[in-house]
């Protein structure tokens, strides 16, 4: 973020409040509150962020905190700029692992969920293993995977996949099972085939659950990609953001560590935003979660 919106954003709330009071008498109250709400929702967090960064900068400068303990925001920004050459490829690696794992988990989770709800036998046979896979901490599997799989990248991918897979699977199973019984009866009554019931009823009805799984899975895939890389990094291989983070720590290059951290958190926010957007776009026409409450 540059300095320009900073000043205006700091001034915005007070200014807007005054404007709002002035026009309240003339405009529709609903319109005002909608606009004021939007302004507030952007202005308040931005304001808090800027205030925090400012306080951080001032603290570091005035308390003369050494950069290897807590670098100033300016130092972090400088590190981000100068080390972009090492950080950017690492970011790409982490992104690639995260998204590949997420896509595989989506495909696998949905496919297995559909399979599981087809028959009680399949569910009885397979579901416990899905749970075991989930509850085993992946950090514990990572070293083993590194032994079995020749490429570190693949091992990281498998870890991230396992972690993202389960929330998608369990949400999807839940969704496929929560179809309105009367609608199922209706499909039955009109002689719908299994395929028709799946395609026209169960999958659309499970969409909100799928979206919840996607949001959770997206966040977890990134976390797993990072955690697994910590394990892999300690084995001496890897070049994702997590490895750069560890490396910076060994070298006491704390500004670069912070820069890597910021990249990770921006990635996380971007994934959250993206999955929320996808969810909103696909549900906005009909699902309660995406609808504005008008009465």
């Amino acid at each position: 973020m540059s300095d320009l919106p900073a000043t205006s954003a700091v001034a915005a709330p007070a200014e807007d409040e005054a404007k709002e009071l002035a026009v309240r008498g003339r405009q529709e109250p609903r319109e005002i509150s909608a606009r004021a709400d939007l302004v507030l929702r952007i202005a308040v967090p931005t304001f808090v962020l800027l205030l925090t960064v400012l306080a951080w900068q001032l603290y570091v400068v005035f308390a003369e905190v050494p950069a290897y303990i807590l670098p100033s925001p300016v130092a972090v920004a400088t590190a981000l700029w100068t080390d972009w050459g090492t950080l950017y490829p690492a970011l790409l690696v982490t992104l690639k692992i995260t998204f590949t794992a997420l896509i595989l988990a989506l495909a696998g989770g949905v496919a297995l969920a559909v399979l599981l709800v087809q028959s009680r036998w399949i569910e009885l046979a397979l579901y416990p293993y899905a749970v075991i896979m989930q509850v085993t901490p992946i950090v514990a599997i990572a070293p083993l995977l590194l032994v079995y799989v020749s490429s570190t990248q693949t091992a990281l991918l498998i870890c991230a996949f396992i972690v993202a897979f389960f929330p998608i699977l369990s949400n999807m199973v839940q969704g496929l099972k929560s179809v309105d019984h009367n609608l199922l009866n209706l499909f039955d009554l009109y002689g719908a085939s299994r395929m028709q019931t799946l395609w026209l009823l169960k999958l659309p009805a499970a969409l909100p659950y799928f979206m919840a799984g996607l949001k959770i899975g997206g966040g977890l895939a990134l976390i797993a990609a990072v955690v697994a890389e910590f394990a892999a990094g300690s084995a001496g291989a890897g070049s994702g953001l997590a490895f750069r983070l560890l490396e910076s720590q060994y070298r006491l290059n704390i500004p670069r560590l912070f820069a890597a951290l910021i990249l990770l958190s921006v990635t996380g926010v971007a994934i959250f935003g993206l999955t929320s957007l996808i969810s909103w776009l696909s549900l906005r026409r009909w699902h309660e979660s995406a609808l504005k409450r008008e009465n």
Partner: peptide, 27 residues
């Protein structure tokens, strides 16, 4: 057989048209 349930039992993700089309689509 036409069956009308106690609740409307419509698919919320389909328009009115799509809901009424359902029995024919299934056939």
């Amino acid at each position: 057989i036409g069956f009308v349930f106690q609740e409307p039992t419509l698919m919320p993700w389909r328009t009115v048209f799509g809901n009424v089309y359902l029995p024919l689509r299934l056939k």
